[in-house]
Design a protein around this nucleic acid. Sequence first.
DNA 1: CCACTGACGAGTG
DNA 2: GCACTCGCCAGTG
Length: 108
Amino acid sequence: MRNASPTYRAIYRTVKRIPKGKVATYGQVATLSGLPGAARQVGYALHALKKDNSVPWHRVVNVRGAISKRSSGRSAEVDQRLLLEAEGVEFNVAGRIPLARFCWTPSS
DNA sequence: CCACTGACGAGTG
DNA sequence: GCACTCGCCAGTG
């Protein structure tokens, strides 16, 4: 972030609000950031973070509850899963997260 | 300015 | 469940 456009900063703010032990989908983050339908930009924004630790990017998964594959480096995918499991998020046999239980639902 | 790309989602068949 | 299409919009050449 740092010098990112307002759109990106809005996305990062939303991601930072995701509580530990929960996950949110790209579409959710987009909507909560005031960008309904711009789920793709969320993914692109997170990709731009690269190795930024100030944002819990690992709590963002796609609507299927699975970890999206990136273009560069497969290690990030493994990292994400380990980080989530360390927070108490479970993965089923299909390697996906039961969103019914772990999807973050903003109370506000 | 134009074309293409990309951690995606929802709708349709 | 799978394949396809369209919408989103910042970044790059």
